[in-house]
Write a protein that binds this DNA or RNA. Sequence first.
DNA 1: GAGGCAG
DNA 2: CTGCCTCAACGCTCC
DNA 3: GGAGCG
Length: 618
Amino acid sequence: MAYARTSDGIRVHYEVLGRASAPPVLMIQGLGADKHGWDMQRYVFAAKYRVIALDNRGAGRSDKPFGHYSLEQMADDAIAVLDACGVDSAHVIGASMGGAISQIVAVKYPERVRSLTLVCTACRNHPWRRELLEGLDLDDADMVDVPAAFEGDLDAALASSRQLGLEGVVAKRASSPYRSTRSRDWLKMKSDPEADFAICGYTPPKGSRNGIGALHWIEPELVVQVRYREWPVDSALRFPVFVRLRPDKTPHECGMPLRHTGEGGGDGEGDLAAVFDEPVVDDRPAIVPDPDLFDPVTDPVDDTDPGRLPDASALEVDAPIRELRLTRLHKVFWPEEQITKGELIEYYRAVAPAILPYLKDRPTVLTRYPDGITGEMFFQKDMPGWIPPWLRTTTLWSEHSQREIHYVLVDDADGLAYVANLGSIPIHCWASRTTSLEKPDWAIVDLDPKNAPREWVVPLALAIHALCDDVKLPNYVKTSGQSGLHVLIPLGGQCTFEQARTLAYLIGLLVERQHPDMATTNRNPAARGGRVYLDWGQNAHGQLLVAPYSVRPVAGAPVSMPLEWPEVVPDLDPKVFHLRNALARIAARAHDPCLPVLDERPDLAAALVELERHAKDG
DNA sequence: GAGGCAG
DNA sequence: CTGCCTCAACGCTCC
DNA sequence: GGAGCG
């Protein structure tokens, strides 16, 4: 999400989707736009056009259309955004009040407008719209509903959405407003594919089920139509649903249907060109999602073995469905590298086997960046009631806020994908587990160079390593993901946070004494004087660790990477491990060098005696 | 990112 | 019917 | 006691 600043300091948010070479479309979201339907349009259009979407929700607190921020000013802002995108002229689509702005754009800057489309279903009876139409001497007939492009051709609309990897399309009554709850007026039309299959067998019904239970092996005779979510290569259908018998078909007519690849039958179906007054000539593949990236339609949502044979349970009708809805996969989270939210989700799903051992049973805090690394962020500890029922949480009492907090526990790849879909970039977890919340599994010394020379971090980390080895404390190292290093010492839940903090402080003090020129344990930034801060203070109740393999919300999408100590050499550059190459490194190694930190139980009393000896000797 | 709710 | 709000927190030091 | 720090 980029933004332009207007002359009076109001921020105008906009988003650019689609290929730069495609015909440009300026979409202006107005007060009458509904959230979901409009977003859907935005992505449908991005298949064929370069969509520049303006969002006046970020325009500030005084952006009421008839307040000091006038419709005319909004129209000027729209032109400013076109300029910022280097676009001379565009097809302009306006939603509700955005339609009003669009019309002003067309009147004031006709040379910038190739065509004008007004989307007004959402606020057909809005008094402002009524006022506007009268003021501009227009009537309803001048307004075009974008969904009308699909009218009478739901198949084309569904094919288009399938081609884009969308879940489906939303159909609504023209007169019905947006409401957050389900209603008869807003129907989600899923684009799940269907195919005809010959029945080879069935299982008896279980429990209270009528008729048949599941279908599997006998001489093929009957044909059924089945809807399914996906058909993994060499495996059974996922989420198959019996639709109807096909008495009109024989088993021989059941050829292999086109596999559901998410790319549909190619270009042309669900064509939106009719909305505009000029044909679209760019016929290159119009799929916005990178085909190498995660696709919610074709990629399995669990880790079941894809090589297994179909069995009765796989064909069970109404099998419990774990819904994992992934949204806005094309949204750019790292503008410089054009890394999308879809790629972030794909990374976390792929890295799940490596990261999950660290997250098991640990209260997890989300650090959410719904608009990517340049947008606003917020922390989230308390998970709301509407999270999917399969996501495990643990309820802890917060002394500070005097209420219960429902922390999420990330158990599996789906859980990771879910939190990533919420815009969580780094994953933060507690040092202790639900089984023993006041006893941490590790102590951490965070080497944070900040204003110190980067190259001082390595010798100091090695000094901590040598000291720990000497007092027989196991110790492990990972990059923080930014410029520092994290040294982790396993505690095996044998001591309190206060004791862990004291241990980390003692180690910090001893290393500071060895290298007073390079290291400091002083918490006051002003007193650090360009030295590396050995941060021992993160060992406390509720303090968080950036989990190994977490992505950081900074340019380059670096990840926190566990290292072998021999890798900690002077020219170590923590930035070399990032979202796009971390998986290759992990796959190339047999073991995770930090993993033992989760299980080891060193003799802490003996180590403390040794540390005291060091303190005296120094 | 998404539900709740004031106006 | 729309826009806006909310979404964390510990232990320490400095002022 | 409140703001700042990570």
